[in-house]
């Protein structure tokens, strides 16, 4: 029982933050895109920087996912 719960805590610690990191990356990418569209270029380039930022955000999310997996496989 003690061993099981210790292992569970370890798993929670190692993998419990995957979802949040993924979402945070997407939010930051898309927020940056919206900021560029609305504030810097005053809405003239309207949807484009948002989409580019969203794409970069999703890519960054997957990259941090791969980082976590690579880190766990290394040892």
């Amino acid at each position: 029982m003690a061993k099981l719960s210790k292992e569970m805590v370890h798993l929670l610690g190692n993998y419990g933050h995957i979802g949040f990191t993924f979402v945070a990356a997407i939010f930051i990418g898309m927020g940056l895109g919206i900021y560029l569209d609305q504030k810097v270029f005053d809405g003239q380039t309207a949807p484009w920087f948002t989409f580019i930022g969203l794409a970069f955000g999703i890519a960054a999310g997957f990259k941090s996912l791969f980082d976590i997996v690579r880190l766990q496989n290394r040892d």
Partner: peptide
């Protein structure tokens, strides 16, 4: 470069908000 920067800033957000 943008991907790495975004995922680095995401650390700031995810660590605090979690």
């Amino acid at each position: 470069l943008p991907i790495e920067l975004i995922s680095n800033f995401a650390r700031l957000l995810s660590l605090s908000i979690r």
